[in-house]
Design a binder for these strands. Structure first.
Lengths: 190, 190
DNA sequence: TCAAAAGATAACCGATCTGTAAAGTTATAA
DNA sequence: TTATAACTTTACAGATCGGTTATCTTTTGA
């Protein structure tokens, strides 16, 4: 199996787990839906958990790269990009097959903080906050920590709303709130 | 089994599902940890899903009552109570055995929008937003929809952060953001 | 061309899953 | 006291779980 074929397997497995959940997806289903035999899967991943971890890592890399790319397209300056976060999220929510945040789901199903899937999922979230923090610093805000957290809270809340609440365009609502918050926020003194 | 004993079973089952997850908790485990035999459980609930639905409904009633009660204790006026939301959340996060929002977890494990557990979980979230909306109206804000959504986004984001992010006191951060947002918000003209 | 690697199929293992049945025990209430 | 309802324990059924093995076919690369 060439590396690309292994990647293909992980990507297809990502679809299966994302749509059905981790515990609810048996390995027979994964084999059937990926088109890769169970024998071949277990030839590359020692256990189901190993496969799930690979799925989480792939999603981490791909999704962060996609999100940053979209944010940098939607916004030019750091401050614009703090708001572009919500434009990117709106685009994400509108995608066919959007079912919420895979990492939140992963932590819901793997609650043990010592579990690698749990830790990797938390690490993903930390990277998101760190990115917003870097934007807040570059934009010259006096309290980049508070700015980054607020943006992150609003974005996460919008994701939950997109899945669970009958709110039309939650990302747009969150963007409005973020814009007001940024407008009131103090700038760093020079 | 008197009604109170049935309630006891559901409450204990709630603990099991909250701690281990829904799919990860087998009925043998539920029987063992609740101290109620599997026979007795199936005497009152036709299926595991029925029990889970009862658990969700109990949690919905209890948690909303608790949250409203705490909010009304922390805040006197409607506007104070919109901020007291975060004091109540901080108290919740600090409780031993806090593992995040059961309804978010439930939707993560029961993705089918037609599933009663999914629908009941979404209904719970709708009630939360509706409560914030009533507070925003009572406080006299010009756009109570936007206010309610923002409070809800921030609260949900703080919950996710409390579980996944290495953020000290996320509820306090969210409260700061909410306070700034309310301070800038327009009041309804008389 | 041909050996070696990688794959598919399908049967299988022991454990666990949801849910049931049988048989005996405890609590309740007239 | 005694009939009844609710409970327990234990075993079980049939399906599915994660994971393995044996056999055969396809792909690959020198």
């Amino acid at each position: 199996m060439r590396p690309s074929k292994k990647d293909e397997l992980v990507r297809k497995a990502l679809d299966v787990f994302y749509r059905h959940g981790f515990h609810a997806s048996g390995m027979d289903l994964v084999a059937k839906e990926t088109g890769v035999s169970k024998t071949a899967i277990y030839n590359h991943f020692r256990t189901k958990d190993d496969l799930i971890l690979a799925v989480i890592k792939l999603r981490d890399e791909e999704f962060r790269a996609w999100m940053v790319s979209r944010i940098e397209t939607y916004g030019e300056t750091p401050e614009e990009r703090l708001l572009a976060v919500f434009d990117a999220h709106a685009e994400w929510f509108a995608q066919k097959g959007f079912f919420g945040c895979l990492f939140v789901k992963a932590c819901a199903e793997f609650q043990d903080p010592a579990h690698p899937v749990h830790q990797q999922s938390c690490a993903h979230q930390a990277q998101g906050i760190a990115y917003y923090h870097s934007l807040a610093v570059a934009a010259g805000f006096a309290d980049p920590d508070e700015i980054a957290r607020t943006i992150w809270f609003l974005a996460q809340g919008a994701i939950v709303a997109a899945v669970m609440a009958a709110i039309d365009n939650p990302a747009a609502s969150a963007r409005v709130a973020a814009a007001k918050m940024l407008a009131c926020a103090e700038r760093r003194s020079v």
